[in-house]
């Protein structure tokens, strides 16, 4: 009788173990991990429209500051770091020229609307800042309005100069 009891208890233990093992073998779900990586690099994109402006002739007596024919819309798109800021500079290497005649480029100034764009005056000796960006990335829209200081001393002619805008994302 003792042998029978031992056999039955052994079977009971085996059945219990089978229960545990069967539960473990039939998992009700499965899962995996997928890792996502992305790289964002510094870049900058500047759009000016139009890219040519004109100042009409006016009497210096009545119009001391001549407005350009059109404002210039500016869009600056910047990707930079959380703790770094983009820069926008305005460089004018030469004065307004007409043959051998010149009008100092510093006679051209501008106002700005829309943050972070700022007003200024062109300078042949050093590039000027066209905006004061905060840190981080973003897209910025604004407008520049240009003015030419009018003076009786300017010789007649058709004057022109090229100004270079440089947007930099560190």
């Amino acid at each position: 009788m003792k042998n029978i009891w031992k056999i039955l208890m052994t079977i009971t233990v085996v059945a219990g173990a089978a229960l545990i093992l069967s539960t473990a073998a039939f998992a009700a779900s499965d899962s995996k991990t997928l890792t996502i990586n992305a790289t964002i690099s510094a870049r900058a994109e500047l759009v000016l429209a139009p890219t040519t402006i004109n100042f009409a002739d006016n009497s210096p007596t009545t119009v001391s500051s001549v407005s350009a024919d059109n404002p210039v819309a500016v869009t600056a798109r910047v990707r930079t770091g959380k703790a770094t800021a983009a820069t926008l500079t305005v460089a004018s290497a030469n004065d307004l020229t007409s043959g051998s005649d010149t009008i100092p480029i510093s006679a051209v100034s501008w106002t700005a609307s829309g943050a972070p764009f700022i007003a200024g005056t062109l300078n042949k000796a050093s590039a000027q800042s066209g905006a004061t960006f905060g840190n981080g990335s973003g897209t910025y829209n604004g407008t520049y309005s240009f003015f030419l200081a009018n003076n009786w001393t300017y010789n007649t002619g058709s004057y022109s100069a090229t100004v270079t805008y440089t947007l930099t994302a560190p």
């Binding site: 499965d30 997928l34 990586n37 790289t39 910047v78 973003g138």
Partner: peptide, 25 residues
């Protein structure tokens, strides 16, 4: 096929995250 919407507003740098793929009934 995974796609990431690309925007100028993202700050530079490497980004990472994990996705759990799991079965369910």
């Amino acid at each position: 096929n995974f796609l990431l919407n690309n925007q100028w507003g993202y700050n530079t740098g490497p980004y990472t995250q994990t996705i759990t793929v799991v079965t369910a009934s």
